[in-house]
């Protein structure tokens, strides 16, 4: 097996998955300024929903979308009934989202037990690409494709629709947006639900490859954080580039410098925060 080529392709594949995970996080963080520490839980819970739907014989894509919808509903409720009352208060938001992440993790353990769940790769996506001495599963490349499609869809939404204009206004300056008549409150609920749905969708997409197990939430949350900090909060392009960057750092770091794998992963985050706090593609918030 060609090590370098495999690592490179896998970096891109992991990047695709990371984008699905962190696009929603970036929107929530950028627009609402909420450090949503339950984002990893959304990913995990979504994946559990997905494997349950698949277990009942549902079509793979349908399961992923259904899981996204279910999570959107949950996200919207959490936002409406809990987070809404805490707008602008970072500390209580941190506590609340952490509290919910405890609750979700324990509920998942209760419902889905400690067993790992790994759905089979959908039949039409099995197989592998063989090229230049490399053997690479098609499914992971499909994830990249899906990530790109979602990235384009999100970009179209943010840049070309009325909703997107409202989001942009909200990211840039929420008080002004409110003054010009944008219903920021409803917008926030919508974005939070969308972010939750994207994470859940990503969770289902990732399940045949990462599997779902207790602790997946805590593994994914820091990755989402790094991606968004690197790329810049609220910037979709940033989340996309950040995802692929972290994909590369993760793969090559683990293979080349296993002792320092996590230093390699987190050091860029520190550097960006210190040298360019708005992230690589973020706008300077006045």
């Amino acid at each position: 097996m060609n090590l370098w080529l495999t690592l490179a392709v896998n970096s891109i594949a992991l990047g695709g998955l990371l984008f699905l995970l962190s696009a929603g996080f970036s929107l929530i963080f950028g627009l609402m300024r909420i450090p949503n520490l339950m984002h990893g839980s959304f990913f995990m819970l979504g994946a559990y929903f997905g494997v349950t739907f698949l277990d009942r014989g549902m079509n793979f894509w349908l399961a992923a979308i259904a899981s996204g919808f279910a999570m959107a509903l949950i996200g919207a409720m959490v936002e409406r009934f809990f987070l809404k009352r805490l707008s602008g208060q970072e500390l209580p938001q941190v506590l609340l989202t952490l509290g919910f992440s405890f609750i979700i993790a324990d509920l998942c353990l209760l419902i889905w037990t400690g067993d790992p769940w790994q759905p089979t790769t959908p039949a039409h996506l099995r197989g592998a690409v063989q090229a230049a001495g490399m053997f690479f599963p098609i499914y992971r490349l499909v994830i990249v494709g899906v990530a790109v499609v979602i990235a384009i869809a999100l970009w179209l939404m943010v840049d070309w629709t009325r909703l997107g204009a409202m989001i942009r206004a909200g990211v840039d300056d929420a008080p002004i947006a409110r003054m010009v008549g944008i219903k920021v409150s409803q917008l926030f609920t919508l974005i939070f639900a969308l972010g939750a749905a994207l994470a859940a969708f990503g969770g289902v997409m990732g399940a045949p490859y990462l599997s779902v197990y207790p602790g997946l939430d805590a593994e994914m949350l820091p990755l989402a954080l790094i991606v968004v900090i690197l790329g810049g909060t609220g910037s979709l392009l940033g989340a996309l580039v950040g995802s692929f960057l972290i994909g590369f750092l993760y793969n090559f770091g683990q293979a080349l410098f296993p002792d320092l794998a996590y230093v390699i992963l987190f050091l860029p985050m520190v550097l960006v925060l210190v040298l360019r706090p708005q992230g690589l593609f973020g706008k300077v918030v006045p």
Partner: peptide, 14 residues
């Protein structure tokens, strides 16, 4: 690989 490894590909590739 560490106890917590989301993706084993970097190791398997070696």
């Amino acid at each position: 690989p560490p106890l917590v490894t989301p993706d084993y590909t970097p190791y398997i590739a070696q």
